[in-house]
Write a protein that binds this DNA or RNA. Structure first.
Lengths: 207, 207
DNA sequence: ATATTATATAACTAACCAGTTACTTATATG
DNA sequence: CATATAAGTAACTGGTTAGTTATATAATAT
C-alpha cells in the first residue's frame, strides 16, 4: 500500500524529474513507461501530465538537467589557475571523472545521437555548452602564443579529440570491455587511461 | 494494394533481414515495430515468426550480420603489405571509411552499449572480432621489434585509441556537429580528420 | 470557520502491438 | 496428374500504454 503524499509541488516535480532521469537514461524515450516513472517517483501518473504536459516534454526536461550539470563543472574547472599545460591536464581529468560519476549523462547523449540529436537541437543545448568550448579554445590559443604549444596544431581537432576521448571511454565501455577483456570501469584502468591520454595529447601539442 | 509474393524462402529471409536491419538500427529493439518490418519487407508478419522465431532473435541475427560485415573488411585490410607505419596508416583509413559507409553498424553498437552489451555478449561477438585485435596487436609488436615504434608505448592503449577515434567520429556526429558548428559527415571534414588522427598516432608511436 | 484553489487519486479509454490461429495457394516430385 | 509440403495470407487475441476524466482532499486567504 502506497502512502499518501503531503502536498508539495516543488518536491513532486523534483521526484518526477529524478525518476524520469533514471528511466529515460536507462531505456530511452520509447522504452520508458510513464507508469514506471510514476511508480518510481511514488506519485500519481496524472501529476506527470500536470507538471510536464507530456512524456516528450519530460524527456526534454531531463536532457536539459543533465547537460546543465556538466556545464557547471566544466566552467568551474576551466577557471583554475596554472600553466596552459596544467590546464589541459586538469580539464582531461575533470572530464573523465565527471563522466565516470554521471552515467545518465553519457546515456542521454547516446540516446540523442541515435535520435539524430533531435531534442538536443530543439532545445539548443549547444548554447549551454558553448562557454566551455570557447574557454578550451582560448586556453589552446594562449598556449600557442606563449610558446607552450606548437602553432601548427589545429585547435578544433584537439578540442574534438579531447571531448571524444573522455566521453567514448565510457560510452563504449560495455562492448569495449568485452573486446579488450578488461573491466573498463575499474578504477585502476581509469587512472592509467587518464595518464595515457594526457601524455599523448601533451606530447602531440607541446613544442 | 500490395502485390503477392512469388514463393522463394531464401529471398524472403533476406528481405526480412534487410528491412529489420534498417528498422532496428534506426529505432532499437523496443522502438521497432514488427509490423513495420513486415511492411518494409513486403511480406506477411507471420513469415517473420516462421523464419526467425521472435523479434528478439531477429534482432540478434541483425547484430551478427553487421559485425560479420566489418570483420571481413578488417581481416582483408590487415593482410596488406608494407611497413608497420604504412599498415597503421592503412587500418585507420579503412576503419574510417567502413564506418562512414555503414551507419547501421554504428547504430547497432550504440544500441548494444545502451543495452549493456547484452546481446553482444550472449552471441559472443568478441569471438568474431578477436582475429582483428590479435592482428593489430601483432603489427604494433612487430613495429616495436624492428625499431619503427617506441618500445615503451602500451599496445592495448593504442589499439583502444584507434578503435575509439574512428568509431566515435561517427557515433557522436549528431551532437558533435551541433557543438562544433561543422558538418562532420562532410567528405572534406572526414578527410582532414583522418589525416590529423593518423598524424597524431604516428607521432606518438614512432621512435 | 469557510471558500477557494492547488495538489492528489483511481479508474477509464482508445490505440497499439507481439505473437497466434486457421486457412489458402504455389511448387516440386513420384 | 496427384498430392505433399513449403510458403503465403487475413484476421484475431490478450495484454500494454499514453493520455484523460471525474472526483477528493489538504493548504491557504479572507
Amino acid at each position: 500500500m502506497r502512502k499518501k503524499r503531503i502536498k508539495d509541488s516543488k518536491k513532486s516535480r523534483e521526484d518526477i524529474l529524478r525518476a524520469a532521469e533514471e528511466e529515460f537514461s536507462d531505456k530511452g524515450l520509447y522504452g520508458t513507461r510513464v507508469d514506471e516513472i510514476a511508480k518510481k517517483a511514488n506519485i500519481n501518473k496524472r501529476m506527470i501530465y500536470e507538471y510536464f504536459g507530456s512524456k516528450e516534454n519530460l524527456y526534454k526536461a531531463v536532457l536539459v538537467e543533465v547537460y546543465s550539470r556538466l556545464s557547471q563543472i566544466e566552467i568551474e574547472s576551466l577557471k583554475n589557475e596554472g600553466s596552459c599545460t596544467q590546464k589541459i591536464r586538469n580539464i582531461i581529468e575533470v572530464y573523465f571523472k565527471f563522466i565516470r560519476d554521471n552515467p545518465s549523462f553519457v546515456n542521454m547523449v547516446l540516446w540523442e545521437n541515435l535520435n539524430k540529436a533531435r531534442y538536443f537541437n530543439e532545445l539548443d543545448i549547444k548554447a549551454i555548452k558553448d562557454p566551455t568550448i570557447t574557454l578550451l579554445r582560448r586556453i589552446i590559443e594562449e598556449g600557442k602564443q606563449n610558446g607552450s604549444f606548437r602553432v601548427d596544431i589545429d585547435t578544433d581537432q584537439i578540442i574534438f579529440s579531447i571531448l571524444t576521448f573522455t566521453f567514448s571511454y565510457y560510452s563504449n565501455r560495455y562492448t569495449m570491455s568485452a573486446l579488450m577483456r578488461k573491466k573498463l570501469d575499474d578504477d585502476k584502468n581509469i587512472q592509467s587511461r587518464i595518464g595515457y591520454v594526457t601524455d599523448m595529447f601533451l606530447k602531440y601539442m607541446s613544442v
